[in-house]
Simulated assay, not measured.
Amino acid sequence: MSRSRFIVASVATALTVAATASLGLWQLDRAAQKTALEASIRSRAQLPAWDNHELLAQTDPASGAYRPVRLQGHWLAQHNVFLDNRQMDGRVGFFLVTPLRLSGSDRAVLVQRGWVPRDFNDRLRMPEVATPSGEVTVQGRLAPPPGRLYQFGEAGTGPIRQNIDPVTYRLETGIALLDLSVQQTGDDEGPLRRHWPLPATDVQKHHGYAFQWFALCALVAGLYLWFQIIQPRRQRARLHGPDAR
């Protein structure tokens, strides 16, 4: 019975140690992947800005995410969308999204123009934001579409929405949108704030998880060593030692 318990404990310990060590290594690998992603994003941010021609020439513009752009075009202000419950600098308000029709083309790109505060006394009131007419130059960086927030029911179609889906929005407006968006950068403009953070890669989170898995691995191995190896040997030593005679 004692030997059977030892074998069961040894097998269970070996499996647990292998599993926790593998999970720790997996978390370290995830951290390395995200570190590489963060380095790639930062290196793209240092590349020369694409203009209209260079952007439209890309077969997969989304592959240039977070690369600078300098685009000329016309705002389609009649299709403004205020995305609700968006935060910047710890404050809740709207992200203003406006399509920019690129000069010399029928294609357009969604531009996240910035964050604006909301009127909490009248939640249906849209902020007053000036939209220049005529051709404008927009500096920014390529970015994925605005992140989706949880919403109840179907997405709305009005100027104030919880989310914006580029495919649905393209069908709704008839605009030939590119499969990406632009975060407009530069100085704040009127009520618009443009303190866009780079995407969080949460590398520290994976390092923390890895530490927890390795600590559990070491704990299991230590308990096995103490209860299955060291303590039985000490008991046998006391039984067969000089004091046991």
Rank of each mutant, 00 (worst) to 15 (best):
Ala39Met: 04
Leu37Pro: 00
Pro61Arg: 01
Val111Cys: 04
Thr59Trp: 00
Leu124His: 11
Leu25Val: 15
Tyr66Pro: 04
Leu55Thr: 02
Ala49His: 07
Ser63His: 01
Asp89Ser: 13
Met126His: 00
Asp51Thr: 14
Ala49Gln: 15
Ile41Lys: 02
Ala108Thr: 04
Pro68Ile: 11
Val111Asp: 10
Arg67Leu: 06
Trp75Tyr: 12
Asn52Phe: 04
Pro68Thr: 06
Asp29Pro: 00
Ser63Pro: 08
Thr98His: 00
Gly24Lys: 04
Gln46Met: 15
Ala39Arg: 11
Gly90Lys: 01
Ala18Tyr: 00
Phe94Gly: 09
Ala45Phe: 06
Ala19Arg: 01
Ala32Glu: 10
Arg30Phe: 07
Val81His: 01
Arg101Ile: 10
Arg113His: 15
Thr98Asp: 05
Gly104Leu: 06
Arg30Asp: 14
Thr98Tyr: 03
Asp119Leu: 13
Ala32Gln: 13
Glu54Thr: 14
Ala62Gly: 04
Asp89Pro: 00
Gln33Thr: 09
Gly90Arg: 03
Ala31Gln: 01
Ala19Pro: 00
Val92Met: 09
Arg125Ala: 15
Val81Arg: 05
Ala31Met: 08
Asp84Ser: 13
Val109Arg: 00
Gly90Val: 10
Ile41Leu: 13
Trp75Lys: 01
Val111Glu: 10
Asn121Thr: 10
Pro117Val: 13
Val116Ala: 07
Val69Met: 06
Gln72Arg: 14
Asp60Cys: 06
Phe95Cys: 10
Arg125Thr: 08
Met126Lys: 13
Thr35Lys: 13
Gln58Thr: 13
Asp51Met: 10
Leu100Ala: 09
Val17Asp: 09
Arg101Glu: 05
Trp75Gln: 13
Ser103Pro: 00
Pro99Thr: 01
Leu76Val: 06
Phe82Trp: 03
Leu124Arg: 12
Val81Leu: 10
Leu76Pro: 08
Leu96Val: 08
Arg70Leu: 14
Arg101Asn: 07
Ala36Thr: 10
Val69Asn: 04
Arg118Gln: 09
Val17Ser: 15
Arg42Ser: 11
Ala31Ser: 14
Phe95Val: 06
Ala65Arg: 08
Ser22Gly: 12
Thr98Ser: 05
Ala21Ser: 14
Trp50Tyr: 12
Ser40Cys: 04
Trp26Tyr: 11
Val109Asp: 03
Trp115Gln: 10
Gln72Cys: 02
Ala49Val: 07
